[in-house]
């Protein structure tokens, strides 16, 4: 049964990792604009634009 201490340790570590990731995401402003990125990701790359434009 002692293995449970190790498992709990891991689970808490993983949870803390995700919490940290979430806090980082908020701090870096990812929740500021929840619309524009969804449009932006549909744009083609710049290099393709160049050939298209002509």
């Amino acid at each position: 049964m002692e293995v449970i201490f190790m498992l709990i340790g891991f689970s808490v570590l993983i949870a803390v990792f995700f919490l940290g990731y979430f806090l980082w995401a908020v701090k870096s402003g990812q929740f500021e604009d929840r619309y524009t990125p969804s449009v932006r990701m549909l744009f083609d790359d710049g290099t393709i634009d160049d050939s298209k434009g002509k």
Binding site: V12, A15, V16, F18, L19, F22, L23, V26, K27, G29, F31, E32
Partner: peptide, 21 residues
């Protein structure tokens, strides 16, 4: 205002994390 919302999200994150665990 936007900083206030940011910190509110972070507080919710911490509270939610603690609640679950």
């Amino acid at each position: 205002n936007s900083a206030g919302l940011r910190s509110l999200y972070m507080k919710v994150g911490v509270a939610g994390f603690a609640f679950g665990n």
